[in-house]
Simulated assay, not measured.
Amino acid sequence: MVERGYSTLELLKRVKVIEPANPNKSTAIFGGKASGILNWNDLAHPHFYTLRQKIRSLFWTANEVDMTQDVKQFSTMTEREQDAFLKIIGLLATLDGPQTDVAAKLSDYTTDPSVKSLMATIADQESEHNHSYAYVLSSVTTLDKQLASFEMGRTDEVLMRRNERIVEVYNEFAESPTIESALKAMIYTTLLEGLFFYSGFAFFYNLARHQKMVGTSTMISYINRDELQHGKAISDIFRAALAENPEYNTEEFTEWIYDQFRHSVEQETIWSRYVLAGIEGIDLEEMAGYVKYRANKMLRMLGLSEIYPEFTDNPMRWIRAYVDSFDDTKTDFFEQSSRQYVKTSDLNGFDDL
């Protein structure tokens, strides 16, 4: 039985740094008891150690990527490609910036020290992702265009409309931290990590397959690899927290999740058509199918059923050379036990980045 100090209907309390009267092994992810002393050999969820090791093994920094050729190539791209490049960097920065803060806020309220450590690792990587977008822009364009790209998250109407629910859910958790709002914030974190970035990623991979902006594409592949592991970690934490709080494992909450996925697919499709129209090598119908395919994969990772049965296979086959992926094994709804995932293939060297 999970031991908590108060009702799950109450606001979560910021966890004290050290409480020696409590056990080292946490009694719950949220609302439990723990001393604050982290022993990786004595965890409530031992596979969280493996998750952290995988994420830590991906360490990299933006300035390791050689942007020399990209500096020369940016001005040779079409005006449409340059515009899409700047808009998509603006999108990615808008999404990755808050991820650092959300991970930190989840850390403030979790009573499991291993989750705190995982969130600290994720927050650090998300911060580097955000830095990488500034690094790319500073390498290829003028300061005024760099600033305009980062302003998009609060000025571009299509992008703002696309992000409305993200803003709502994240701010709800920040202002009213409960177990329910934490669970919802984690759902949106998995959506960001596994769905919202992908039309943008596809744009850069498409440039790379045409031998354009390969340095930027390499950077994106590093970020993509990180996000897949973050999505895995957050989904596992979510499922463990839900198993500890079965009162939220309801048809109503399940339908809420499905609704967020449907809405997110719709908004991602609208965004991709807005930003990728006229880009050589991108088929917008294939992209719409790819977004649904990604949604199915994320739902399977959460232990839920697919909602787009006609998109169980990747319609953008070429992108598999650039994207790490999980397997297609589905488990029972919100099963608590750890799942094992593998990369899709070793089609080329990008899988080894």
Score class of each variant (00 low, 15 high):
G289R: 06
A174S: 08
I55K: 07
K25D: 10
S235T: 15
F201D: 02
G289Y: 00
L228C: 05
V275E: 08
S138G: 13
L207P: 00
A134V: 06
R320H: 12
N245C: 09
K16H: 08
R56W: 14
T142R: 10
G231H: 02
N41C: 10
D70P: 02
V265W: 08
E126K: 01
M119T: 06
D108L: 12
E335I: 09
Q99F: 00
D124W: 01
G278D: 10
F334I: 04
A277G: 02
Y109T: 02
F261A: 01
Y135M: 08
E164A: 09
V265E: 01
Y205D: 04
T50E: 15
M67N: 11
E10K: 08
T8H: 10
K212N: 07
R294E: 11
L51H: 14
L242A: 08
T76M: 15
A182N: 03
Y222A: 01
R239W: 02
V342K: 12
N24T: 09
V169E: 08
E247N: 03
E335W: 13
G153R: 04
G194I: 00
T61A: 07
D144G: 00
F333W: 15
T94S: 15
S57P: 03
S139W: 03
Y248D: 09
A233T: 15
T331G: 07
L58A: 13
T329W: 13
I279L: 04
D156M: 05
M316C: 11
M1H: 08
E151M: 11
L299A: 01
V214E: 05
A44W: 01
V214L: 03
E310V: 01
N171L: 11
I223H: 02
Y258V: 07
N130S: 08
